[in-house]
Amino acid sequence: MLQTHTVNGDVYVGRRRLRPRWLLVGAAVVLLAGTGAVVWLRPSGPAELRVTADLSANDAGPWGYASEDPGFPGPELAARLARPGAGTDGAVAHDVRVSGAASLEQQVVRLHLEGPRSGQVVVTDIRPVIRKRVPPLGGGLVWSPSQGSEDSAQTLLELDDRFPVLQAVVRDPGGNRNFPAGPYFPAHTIKLTDGETGEVVVTASAAKGAYDYDLAVFSQSGTEIKQTIVDDGGKPFRVTGFACSGPHEAAYHVVYFADGDFSLPRDPHPERFGTLPYC
Rank of each mutant, 00 (worst) to 15 (best):
G138N: 11
C244I: 13
V201I: 15
A101K: 07
E76Y: 12
L104F: 08
G140W: 06
P265R: 09
A216C: 00
F72N: 03
G115Q: 01
P128F: 10
R131Q: 10
L2S: 09
K191D: 01
A243T: 07
R17Q: 07
E48A: 15
H5R: 15
V255I: 05
A27P: 00
E76P: 00
T197H: 06
S221W: 02
A207F: 13
P84C: 10
V13G: 03
A216G: 01
L81W: 03
V170H: 13
R238F: 01
G148Y: 14
P265H: 13
H248P: 00
G138E: 03
D151T: 05
G246Y: 07
L113Q: 02
A243I: 08
L2I: 12
A47D: 09
G260V: 05
G234Y: 14
R42Y: 04
K191I: 07
Y65P: 03
I130V: 15
A82V: 06
A33L: 08
Q147H: 12
V30C: 03
D259R: 14
V13Q: 11
G115S: 04
L31I: 02
V239Q: 03
R272G: 00
S67K: 06
V254P: 02
P186R: 13
T223Q: 14
D10I: 12
A60W: 08
V13C: 02
L215V: 06
S67A: 10
V134A: 08
I126M: 02
A86H: 03
T124H: 04
H94R: 15
V129I: 13
S149D: 11
L23D: 01
T275W: 05
L159Q: 02
G34V: 09
F242V: 07
D232L: 07
V29F: 09
D95H: 07
L192G: 01
T88Q: 11
A207S: 13
L55M: 12
P84I: 15
P75H: 11
P247Y: 12
L77E: 04
Q120I: 07
S44F: 03
P247G: 06
D89Q: 03
L55S: 02
S205M: 11
T275N: 06
V123L: 10
H248M: 15
C244W: 06
G233A: 06
G198H: 11
P135D: 07
D231A: 14
S56Y: 02
Q120R: 15
P265M: 10
D95P: 02
V169R: 11
A207Q: 12
D151K: 12
D59Q: 14
